[in-house]
Amino acid sequence: MIRRFLEPLAWAGVAVAVFWGLPDRLALVTHLTTLALFALSLHVVVGLGGILSLGHAAFFGLGAYTVGLLALQGWTEPLTALLAAGIIGAVAGLAAGSVLARLRGLPALMVTLGLGLLLHEAALRLPGLTGGEDGLSGLETAPIFGSFAFDLWGKTAYWYALSVLAAAFWCVSRLEVAPFGVSLRALHDNPTRLHALGIGQTARVQTAYGISGALAGLAGGLLTQTTQFVSVEVFSFHRSADVLVMLILGGVGRRYGALLGPVLYGVLRDVLADWHPAYWGAGLGLALMAVVLLAPQGLLGLRWPWARANPERVELPATTHLHK
């Protein structure tokens, strides 16, 4: 019970410490926050549902372009624009989920891959709408609540992005312990058993995709708002692949892994790239291999001395009754 209040306070303390301690690194932290939100969206399907996805950039890109196109039309109010990005992401997630929910394993993976490539190609073919490789630039974002303008130092963007991530993280935490989240987890662990219990899978997976799509859309929208730019690169395959790598690095199946992975990946990349602009990739590759070899469950999968065994993991008691 105490943990419930202590944890948000601790995080808020960290946020303030970063804000005062690293005022010239806020752009990096904001960027990592966006990636963490994206990783969190992937966590909902991969971590909870156990459904791999290689096309998550599709939802991210749709969100990014929703904000971009709205800004071009003069709709620059950030909160409603971001909400629109989330809604578009959710709708796309539900639509994709209607197909993906009927598939498992490799076929599902192939469909997500195809979806990502399809949207990337479509965006390239519609330069009038998307701006093609050149993208849409000069996108205005109005001050938040009419008073906090986005500044070059990224102070507003920092608090804004962190708030969105915090809200999303809280929602995912609640989701994990809700019957819906628990049943998703059960689907991951033993779909046959779930089926035998008479719990439908299709609607659950579809809803998971809807939630995941909404979060990815929010992340995309955040990226557009904090960089004032969007191009078809948001749909690219490497974005889908990178986010999966980040999630694996942090630890699949753990929502804190979705935070740790992007932060670690991003900070490592930045430090190594500052060390050497050409050979940082080698350092990053070695670090990733080391993590996968030494901690196959991701960094949070390690048995840290100060951690209880799998503290975030909700184990299903054998007697849990699942309600449809």
């Binding site: 601790a10 410490a17 301690g21 690293l22 690194r25 740790l260 900070v267 490592l268 930045d270």
Partner: peptide, 16 residues
Amino acid sequence: MPILLSRRALVITSAL
């Protein structure tokens, strides 16, 4: 969790 976080801050600071 805060322990991990301060590590991250350490990494960033050393880069700086």
